[in-house]
Design a protein around this nucleic acid. Structure first.
Lengths: 105, 105
DNA sequence: TCAACATATATTGTATATCGCATATGACAT
DNA sequence: ATGTCATATGCGATATACAATATATGTTGA
């Protein structure tokens, strides 16, 4: 595996994007649904401007795509591969918690 | 996949830990070597206190283990599974960059 | 005990992230 | 054109993260 600096920096950027509960929730909701902002808001139960903000970040880093249809903007996972990785992490954590709880601060 | 809040929060914590170039470098170096702090410092070319600090974070979140032998403290990957995931992310990024560059800010 | 070496911690300044609130844009219908 | 709905953006307060420097701890050997 090539571990050149720019590659690592790029990966770190994606990790930063994934370092937020709300963004993960949004990504996860989009796994099964293409959805407009309103339904995302309804699902995650966060203020609309916050959801829009997180969506903008996800879009900036190309984790989601968007398509405008009239008043509505539909968001969609750009790259399901990323969510596969998130799945792997969630599975890992779940497993860890079950077998040997982490006692983080 | 269960996506309950605590699981996501835990995953997010790990993502935060991975959101740092120096920590990734250290983890990656430890993939092939158990190593004491001095050799890690020599390898990554960062000030020793900074390396110790990052190691403390990696240790706190149980990504590495440590064993003291005399004056030296040897660090070791606790969970190779995590590094598999990092590998996957690096591979993903590499692939992305090659085929369709992201134009992040 | 003291010196030296390896490692850890504390402190600080700076940068960046997060969220809430207010407001702006943009599209459609009337 | 105006009102309304869907979404986006801007701003301010707070919190968190980063890295550098200085300093402390702990271990070994003389």
């Amino acid at each position: 595996m090539d571990v050149s600096e720019p590659i690592i920096e790029e990966a770190v950027k994606i990790y930063k994007v994934l370092s937020n509960v709300n963004r993960i929730k949004i990504l996860y909701f989009l796994e099964n649904n293409e959805a407009d902002v309103s339904s995302i808001v309804a699902h995650v139960g966060l203020p609309q401007p916050l959801v829009s903000h997180q969506l903008a970040i996800l879009f900036q880093y190309q984790l989601v795509t968007r398509s405008k249809q009239g008043k509505h903007v539909y968001y969609c996972l750009d790259d399901p591969h990323i969510l596969k990785m998130v799945d792997a992490m969630l599975g890992h954590v779940q497993h860890e918690i079950k077998h040997e709880p982490h006692h983080y601060a």
